[in-house]
């Protein structure tokens, strides 16, 4: 998900995203990557595959900084996350 660091109104599966703490509807966005494979396991030096990662879209409330995270799910041309830039 290519997105610059702006403010957004967000819809998840067609439902407006609100902050559960302060009810704000404006969020900033970051994409975050979580390793799924433990970095402590023995690494095969000949394996050039990058570590498996869980990619989440992270939305931080502009008022209270509460964070909500979603995995982007796509089905054909449809996606669960729709963002509208507001500034």
């Amino acid at each position: 998900m290519d997105r610059k660091h702006s403010n957004y109104e967000v819809q998840i599966i067609g439902k407006p995203l609100r902050c559960p703490h302060c009810d704000s509807a404006i969020f900033s966005h970051r994409e975050v990557y979580l390793d799924i494979v433990s970095p402590n396991v023995d690494v095969d030096p000949f394996n050039e595959d990058p570590p498996e990662q869980l990619v989440l879209q992270s939305f931080t409330c502009n008022d209270c900084y509460n964070i909500q995270q979603f995995q982007q799910l796509t089905k054909g041309m449809e996606t669960n996350i729709v963002c509208k830039q507001v500034d």
């Binding site: 390793d35 869980l54 669960n80």
Partner: peptide, 27 residues
């Protein structure tokens, strides 16, 4: 899931977390 976690003057280590993703909305 794992993330590198650095706590100043305490330790630098790997922190395991557990992440559940909703199959319906992705939360």
């Amino acid at each position: 899931t794992y993330k590198n976690e650095v706590e100043p003057e305490m330790y630098a280590g790997i922190q395991a977390n557990y992440t559940a993703v909703c199959t319906h909305c992705g939360s």
